[in-house]
Design a protein around this nucleic acid. Structure first.
Lengths: 151, 151
DNA sequence: CCTTGTATTGAAAATGATTTTCAATTACAA
DNA sequence: TTGTAATTGAAAATCATTTTCAATACAAGG
């Protein structure tokens, strides 16, 4: 699905959920659909104001909360903090996150369900969620460092 | 190593790092050594005041920060928030966390280094950290629910 | 054991992030 | 087009965390 179609789909879903489609929401939806980076509220606010100058931070918080309820975006956690949001990937994917710029890639890894089942059995826990995430520096963020060391 | 010996070791390490061994620090160290739950600053504060009534929240923050610097505790992230601390496990372990009470168990899982290397190769990322965590409800926290549904 | 210098403490104030309140505005159903 | 309820953004309130600061207490040296 191309970005424009995805934006329409998200707006339709918002409307189906009893929400009105407004300019601020459209700006935030376009932003979240169009980026592969995990963005915090302030980043969404700053980027969103480029499209919709009057956008308020409060509206950002409320819209992100609603999109999360609808499962269209999800909160991702990084070692130094949480509270960033990312468009939800199709199917369950593992994440590779750049700790410098927030860029996110997904990768196919092992199916964790067998391990999860075994651990649940061994421990008596009812397991209902798991994270497999790698953290590092993306190719683009590595460049400046190597450039510096070469000069 | 038994808990008392571990407390001594932590206090020695604190002293070696140029810190003084004080009553508030001792209380916090005993707490963190003695629990298998991931605790947030407020929880440490409340539990710590049982041992050392005058304990201040500021001291909790500062002591947790210092223990983290020394690698004795580490920050763990849960789906609904981060900023909880847990005694660091020996060797690199995967975590199983109870989202209800914060209880943490470690489990032996697959060695992720080969997968990590492959993903780094495929993506150009420099990978320097990974998380494999399961979340669920521990046996103890499941009890009340089943009791309710049975009554 | 006592003195002394300095790290540490806890209260209060400051900061920063997030949530709530509220009057004005706007989407959209009738 | 109109009425109404949802939505907006500013300001205020709240909550978590950090900084400031005067008083205290650890521990090294006499």
């Amino acid at each position: 699905m191309n970005p424009t179609a995805t934006v329409s789909r998200w707006l339709d879903l918002l409307q189906s959920a009893g929400c009105r489609v407004t300019a601020p929401r459209r700006a935030i939806v376009e932003l979240m659909v169009g980026t592969s980076r995990a963005l915090g509220p302030i980043e969404v606010y700053d980027l969103g104001r480029a499209e919709h100058p009057g956008l308020g931070l409060v509206t950002v918080y409320r819209t992100l909360e609603k999109l999360e309820e609808l499962g269209l975006i999800e909160r991702v956690h990084l070692p130094d903090g949480c509270h960033r949001y990312l468009r939800t990937a199709d199917g369950h994917q593992h994440l590779l996150l750049c700790t410098s710029c927030g860029l996110v890639q997904t990768f196919a890894g092992d199916d964790l369900d067998p391990l999860s089942g075994k651990v649940a059995n061994d421990t008596g826990f009812a397991i209902n969620e798991h994270w497999l995430q790698f953290f590092g520096t993306c190719p683009n963020c590595r460049k400046p460092i190597s450039t510096l060391s070469e000069s």
